[in-house]
Design a protein around this nucleic acid. Sequence first.
DNA 1: GACGATTTGTTTTGCACTAGAACAATAACC
DNA 2: GGTTATTGTTCTAGTGCAAAACAAATCGTC
Lengths: 391, 391
Amino acid sequence: MRAANLGLVLRTVCAADERPSRADIAAATGTTRATAARLADDLVAAGLLDEVERTPTARRGRPATPLAPGSRFAALGLQADAALLVARVLDLRGRVVAERVEDGDFAGSEPGPTLDRLGALAARLVADLPPDLHLVGAGLALPGIVDVATGSLLRAPNLGWSDERPAERLARWLPPGLVPLLGNEADLAARTVAEAGPGRPGTHRDFLYLSGQIGVGGAAVLGGRVMTGSSGWAGEVGHVCVDPDGPACRCGSTGCLEQYAGRDALLAAAGLPRGTAPAVLAERAAAGDPAAGAALDTAAWALGIALAGALNVLDIPVVVLGGHLGELGDLLCPRVADHLARRVLSARWRRPTIASAANGPGAGATGAALRALEDVLADPAAWLGRPDVPA
Amino acid sequence: MRAANLGLVLRTVCAADERPSRADIAAATGTTRATAARLADDLVAAGLLDEVERTPTARRGRPATPLAPGSRFAALGLQADAALLVARVLDLRGRVVAERVEDGDFAGSEPGPTLDRLGALAARLVADLPPDLHLVGAGLALPGIVDVATGSLLRAPNLGWSDERPAERLARWLPPGLVPLLGNEADLAARTVAEAGPGRPGTHRDFLYLSGQIGVGGAAVLGGRVMTGSSGWAGEVGHVCVDPDGPACRCGSTGCLEQYAGRDALLAAAGLPRGTAPAVLAERAAAGDPAAGAALDTAAWALGIALAGALNVLDIPVVVLGGHLGELGDLLCPRVADHLARRVLSARWRRPTIASAANGPGAGATGAALRALEDVLADPAAWLGRPDVPA
DNA sequence: GACGATTTGTTTTGCACTAGAACAATAACC
DNA sequence: GGTTATTGTTCTAGTGCAAAACAAATCGTC
C-alpha cells in the first residue's frame, strides 16, 4: 500500500504543471496533509523529489515549499537510424541534461561497427555527466521490428539489419548494469507526443503517430499509453494495403502505404534524387511544380485510405505526423483531412484531426529515455533505500 | 486496501478452473491463509461466494470446503438485432439461469414498439426468476454505433434506427433501478470469446472478433479486455477500405469490406435472395456451385486485405469469426488464412490464425450480462453491506 | 509595530487491515 | 490408535492511513 502511495505522490508531482507543495499533493491525491507529507518526505530523502526554491508569492499564510521531481535521477536514450546516431540523457524533470549527435549514412551498414560508434558516443556522453547524477536505465530506439521481451531486433529494413541483439554490444560501452531496453522507433517517438515529460501528459493522449523515415512506421497511443499489441509491434500503418493492384512492396504484399508515402517513394514520384531533403520537395510543390504536387496528392490519397482504415479499427480521432511526413505537414494535412472526413465512419460525430509533431530529430532517443524513467515512476519504492544512489 | 483485496479474492475464485478452497486462494493471491479466509468469509456472508459441497477426495489432511462464485447474483443481458430479440440471465458462475428468445424481422422497424416487445420479453423472464436471485445490472447489445457514456444509440443501419435512447424505454419494463447499459453488439459478443464466464479467461485473450450480421461489425480484444477506443466504437473493420475503386457504401466511403463480406452482399454475389440462411450458401459452394464459390472467394479476398491491415495496426495474431461469417468459417478460414500469411507483416515470425467462434446466436446478450457482472467483480465491497440483497 | 487571519507543515492518537505464528479440526497412512 | 498432512481459526504484533490538534510562517489591518 505504501509502495502504491509513494508512486501516486511521485506521479502527481511529475504530472503537475506547477511545482506543487505537500498540501497541493494532499489535495490532488485525496489523502490528508499528514500522509502526503510523510510520503513526500521519504521521496525527498531518497532524492526522488527535490525541495526547490520558493518563488515569492503575495499570498497569505505560511509559504509553501514547492516540490519538483528529483534532478539527480536520469536515463539514457539512444537512437540509431539510417542517417543519425543520437545519445541523450533526460532527467526526471524531462530536461535534456546532455546530448551527443552524429550524422552519417548507416543504411546497409554493418551492425557491429555502427553499434560501436553509437556506444562510443554514449560512453563519451556518460563520462562527462555530473558525478551525482544517477542513471536509472537506458533505452535504444531502432527503426524496425523489435522483440521487446527478448531484446532482439528481428528486422530493420532501412538499416539492412536482421536478427541482431544490440543491447549486449552497447552494454560493453556503458556503466555496469546499464543494459539498454530495445524499442521500436515509432513507438518511442510517439511517447514524446503523449508525454511532455516523465509522467506529464502531452498535447494529445489518444492519437495515431506516423513516423516518416525511409519507410513509414507507426504507433497507436490510447489513454496516453503506447499500444504495444500482443508482441509489441502494433501501429504498423506503413504496410496497410492501399490498393491491392498497386506496386509490390518488399514486405511481400502489394500496394502498401509505404509505396506511396515513404520518403524514397515520395521523392521518386516527384522526380527528385533519393537523398533530397523533404524541404526541397515542399518548396517545389509550393512553387507549383506539377510532379511534386502530384506526388504529394498521391501520398495524401494513400494516407487517407490507410489512416481511415486504421482510425476506424482503433477509434482514434487524432493523427500526428512525425519524421519527413511531419516536415511536409503543412502541405499534407489539409489534403489528408479531406480524405479522412469522407472515409472515417465516425467523422459525422467527431471530425478527425491531423497535425505535425513538434518533436525534432532524434525523438526516438527522447522516447527511449522517457520509457526508462517510467520504471521509476511505476515503483519508486524500489529506488528508496538503495545504497548505490547518491543521497 | 480491503476493497482491493476483496476484489482480488473474488476474481481469483471466478478465474479458477476448479473450485478453490480458502487455502488455495491464499496461495494464489500471495496472502496468508488467515487473511484470505477472513476476506472469503465476508464474501460468503454477503452471498458473493458460496461454500459448495465438497467432492470426495483421497487426500490426507482436513478436507477443504470448495468456494464458488455466488449463485444468487446475476445480471440481465438483452439483445435486439435485425432478426432476433434475446433476453438472458447469467449468474456469477456464468450459467444461463433463464432465457427467452423471439424471432422476427425488425429491419426497418419502429424503435419504440420493437423495444417494447423486447421489454415485455424481459419482464416475463424476470417475473419467473427465483425470488432469492438478485439482479445486479443489465446490458443491451445493439448492432450499431453506440455512445456508451451517454447511453444513446447513434446509428444502427441494420435496424434503420438513429439517435435513440433505448435504456429509458426498456427500464419501464424492468424492476426499478435496473437500467440497461448500452453496448455495441460486436464488442459484447467478443466478450463471450474472451471470457468463458465472469472473470474466467476464455480460449483467446488477444484477438480480433468479426461479427457477421447484415453488415460486418468488429471488436478488438487485447489482454482479455475489449478495446473501446476513445469513444467506444473501436474495431469497426466492416468499413475498412478494401478497394478504393469498389462499390459505394452507405457509410459514404467506397469499397468497404462490408460490400464484399456482409451477409446481403455475399448472398447477392452468390445469386441468392436476401433472406437466405448462410448454411444454404455453404451447401451450394460445397456442391460446386460456381457463383457461390466465387462469392466466397471474393469475400475471403476482401477479408484478407481488410484483416491484414487491421492485424498490422493492432498487432494481434488471432481472428475469430462470429455471426454468418462464423457459420461459413469452414469454407472461409483456409482461404483467408492464405491472404493473411502473405499480407501480415509479422506473419514470418508468427503465423496469424483464424477460426470460428463457438458462441451461438444471441452472443451479444451473454456479453451484455458479462459486462454487467464485471462491475461486481471490480468492486465487491460495494455489494457487501447492502440491505436490498437477500442474505 | 502588535495582533488576528490564513495557510502550510508536523506531531499525536486511534483505527483498519495484514502478517505471522500458534492452535484446533479432520481425514488418510502406517 | 498414533502419526502425519492439510485446512481453517484465533491471537498478537506491526504497518500505514485518517483525523485532529498544534507549531510555524507570512499577510493584512488597526
